[in-house]
């Protein structure tokens, strides 16, 4: 895999992550931030698998798997809190 190609992919994923983080910092309300966090965690899961591929370390794929599970639970907990269910 050539160097330019790697840079383009890092640019796309990192750019998406950065835009989601701008919304996370800007967001008018708590729900906007939660939505941005949801997207950011998914993009970073993909980024983690991509780094695992570049480094050739299959262990990071397991990390990505566990990360996707835990980020789902985290977003769900935040949503339930905003919902008023965790009072």
């Amino acid at each position: 895999m050539s160097n330019t190609f790697t840079s383009i992919l890092f640019g796309l994923l990192g750019g998406g992550l950065l835009l989601a983080f701008i919304r996370l910092l800007k967001g008018q309300h708590g729900t906007d931030r939660a939505v941005a966090l949801d997207t950011a965690t998914l993009i970073s899961t993909n980024l983690l698998v991509f780094i695992a591929f570049l480094e050739g370390r299959s262990m990071l794929v397991d990390v990505a798997l566990v990360y996707s599970v835990l980020s789902f639970l985290g977003v769900l907990a935040i949503a339930r809190y905003l919902d008023g269910g965790l009072r």
Binding site: L12, L13, G15, L19, A20, H29, V35
Partner: peptide
Amino acid sequence: GGFILFTSGLGILRMPDVWNRLHAG
């Protein structure tokens, strides 16, 4: 795939209200 993930981040930033952001997200 990378391009679509980038558009999702862009959608999160550009969409006007929270439900539409959720569509992109």
